[in-house]
């Protein structure tokens, strides 16, 4: 995909010590952020991350952390105005 968003902003990180190389994160990531390097996973394209949280949720060893959220300006504005609880109106 040619479209890229802002660089150097995402909250994604991986603890290499905890990674057991199952590769589940490479499977669930919709933007090819991870790749196997030897018997562990590495982040190869951090800026492509959209913080959907699929990798962290599916890591059986809790090696990945990311602050998951929806990249939606409407939601950002509404939660700034009315508090975090407010959900967006999307289906």
């Amino acid at each position: 995909m040619g479209l890229r968003y802002l660089s150097g902003v995402v909250s994604l990180s991986i603890e290499q010590d905890k990674c057991r190389g199952c590769g589940r994160c490479t499977e669930v990531c919709p933007h090819g952020v991870f790749a196997m390097k030897g018997d562990k996973v590495s982040i190869i394209d951090r800026d492509a991350c959209m913080e959907c949280g699929a990798c962290a949720k599916n890591c059986p060893f809790a090696a990945i952390s990311v602050n998951p959220g929806v990249g939606c300006a409407y939601k950002v504005i509404m939660s700034a105005l009315f508090g975090e609880k407010r959900s967006c109106g999307c289906s």
Binding site: L3, L6, A73
Partner: peptide
């Protein structure tokens, strides 16, 4: 951005 498939919460 809310419709897009690639924007992150931190970025937005």
């Amino acid at each position: 951005t809310g419709c897009s498939t690639y924007t992150s919460f931190s970025g937005v």
